[in-house]
Amino acid sequence: MALRRRIDFREGGRVLILGATGSAGSMAIQIAKRFGAAQVIAAGRDTTRFKALEALGADRTITFDEAAVAADVDVVLDFVWGGPAAGAMLPMLTARADRSAPLTWIQIGSMAGATAPVPSAALRAARLQILGSGIGSVPSRDFVAELPELAAAVAEGALDVRARAVPLAGIAQAWTEQTGERLVLVP
């Protein structure tokens, strides 16, 4: 949704994914590549998952404190928000080779916090656009329009989906396991 319905993402674009070690972030790597991203940089906390991210198509893996190396991306897909996003923002913006080149920061998830202390200098330091992507920002008809292609890609094995069915009665246990898999609750 973020790349196809919130912005006009063009083939050859460069993408940074904050929170790439999570389930949604690892899917975003594959989807960005599928949509023609020339470069996908995956940022995360769990460095033990970096090799797996490269296998999914990440061109480079970094930790959040290395975000300045991704300064010249066109789009940031942010699944974490909070302090880590705010902490990465200013170093990225000030390291850009051309600060007048647009950078679109798409806030998708908030695993690290519902609010982010974005420094005012970030809004003046470069041509930055921050927007959100999720239910409410995208009409339901757009979700419905995207589902057939996504379902076909999953069915044909073009996307590596790491999901595990969990009986509803076992949700408490499964939630604490932190496996990096998407949990699918089964009644």
Rank of each mutant, 00 (worst) to 15 (best):
A28Q: 07
S23T: 08
E177P: 08
R182I: 07
G36L: 13
A38T: 02
A38I: 02
A126T: 03
R96V: 09
E156T: 10
S26R: 13
I17F: 04
Q173Y: 10
R162Q: 14
A101V: 12
D78Q: 07
T21W: 05
P148S: 08
G87E: 13
T176R: 15
R141E: 12
V15P: 02
R99I: 12
I171P: 01
V73P: 04
G83K: 14
L147E: 12
V138H: 01
T61E: 09
G132C: 09
P117S: 12
A88N: 03
W105K: 00
F64S: 11
S23K: 06
L185H: 03
Q39V: 06
E54H: 01
S23M: 06
A122L: 02
A32N: 06
A151C: 14
S23Y: 08
I106F: 06
A95H: 01
T176N: 15
R4G: 09
A101P: 09
A116V: 00
T179Y: 13
G134K: 06
A122Y: 00
S140T: 08
E177M: 13
W105E: 00
T63C: 13
A68H: 06
R45P: 02
G87K: 09
V186E: 14
D78F: 08
E66A: 13
L103D: 00
A97L: 09
G82A: 11
